[in-house]
Design a protein around this nucleic acid. Structure first.
Lengths: 210, 210
DNA sequence: ACTAACTTACTGTCTGGTCAGTTACTTGCT
DNA sequence: AGCAAGTAACTGACCAGACAGTAAGTTAGT
């Protein structure tokens, strides 16, 4: 996106923060926290390094802001979906995983890699992510499984471990898309992966015995 | 391991490389490539920074050596297992995943996180890992699935995507163990996860229809 | 003319890499 | 066996480059 203006720069106080966050997410996701230079982030956002410091206190604050800002919309979207549903559990699980596949393909998909990679360097952020994302998400899926079991739709499985198996393929897809996919021949089809996973998973959970 | 010798240091040319590699793996795994300081690696290995340079050319070479050295034994172990087996496909899959669970719990389990995190900064390494580990592993599992389908043991599924679903839970376990597990209350039971996953997966693959 | 958004040139610190010097161990000579 | 003389493993102080953060100066907009 080239500047449509002939002048050297424009004052755009309102638009800057989001642009900086987007640039930072991209840089952090491809290089990691320590290896990204703030000058690159600034360049990507179409500003100079100094300007960046008008909007964020420093590198760490920027990093945390990126994670929080990118995360919140997705969390709410997924939880809203689950709260209002009342049909069969298999269908709920299907909707949830397809929505998750959508998240994987979006900007938000870069976060898991980022958090996993930097968990050792940012204990506070790691705990935040663990509590507000992982545990919340796993609890949500666990509740669906328990609901299905209680209703006689699913077999009685070890729910605490099964939730891991439910999210793993999509999560791995998110990591793949943001690391090794670039070196592979063809891009991964996240929706197709979700459907194959659902096919296997729902059969694996099915309660009917002949 | 404290030095049993009272003197300041000992000449131990033969033992150094492995000790340095072990120290480097630990540091890289918890901090990432850019954030680990060679002085820390040296300290962990019980030597000074200068000595490190007698054994490795620089930080990048050390990093690649860590990955290669940690990887090769595990690859061979898993492939040997698959090559000689001739029983039912479900049992082969079971053995393979339980072996994989063992790898996850070992030092090698730190590698996926490392490679995923640094893929953007080390294109050569990423391609090496993609070709020699990922593709090889997926091909192996794909072959088992196709074998099961051909023998009428498994349903006809989309093999290319299903292999992802087969490895995802264990791989995610490896990532978990090396990032967020430290902040969780209890350690994850990898073997239990593998068993639950196998239970779900094998039911999902089963060919019998009532 | 005024001000706030923005830039640019600068500083201090941190760390990868080097190298001159030190010390453990070995070898050969008596 | 004892003891230089030699050598290779190892150290630690140092240097150069890179980069986070700063602040004085410049320009767009009102």
């Amino acid at each position: 996106m080239p500047t449509p203006h002939p002048s050297r720069w424009r004052r755009r106080k309102a638009a800057r923060p989001d642009e900086i966050l987007a640039a930072a997410l991209a840089s952090f996701a491809e290089r990691g926290f320590a290896a990204t230079r703030l000058e690159d982030v600034a360049g990507r956002a179409g500003i100079s390094k100094g300007t960046l410091y008008l909007y964020f206190k420093g590198k760490e604050e920027l990093f945390e802001a990126v994670v929080r800002a990118t995360l919140l919309p997705s969390i709410e979207r997924v939880e809203a979906l689950a709260a209002t549903f009342e049909g069969p559990s298999a269908q709920l699980l299907e909707r949830l995983l397809l929505a998750f596949a959508g998240v994987v393909d979006s900007r938000t998909g870069a976060l898991p890699k980022l958090v996993i990679a930097e968990a050792g360097n940012f204990p506070d952020l790691a705990r935040f992510y663990l509590n507000e994302v992982i545990r919340r998400g796993l609890r949500l899926i666990g509740a669906i499984l328990r609901r299905g079991i209680a209703r006689g739709e699913f077999r009685a499985v070890d729910v605490d471990h099964a939730v891991f198996c439910v999210v793993a393929p999509m999560l791995l897809g998110a990591l793949w898309k943001n690391s090794l996919e670039a070196y592979d021949d063809a891009p991964m089809d996240t929706q197709a992966l979700a459907r194959v996973h659902l096919d296997l998973l729902l059969r694996g959970l099915e309660a009917h015995r002949p």
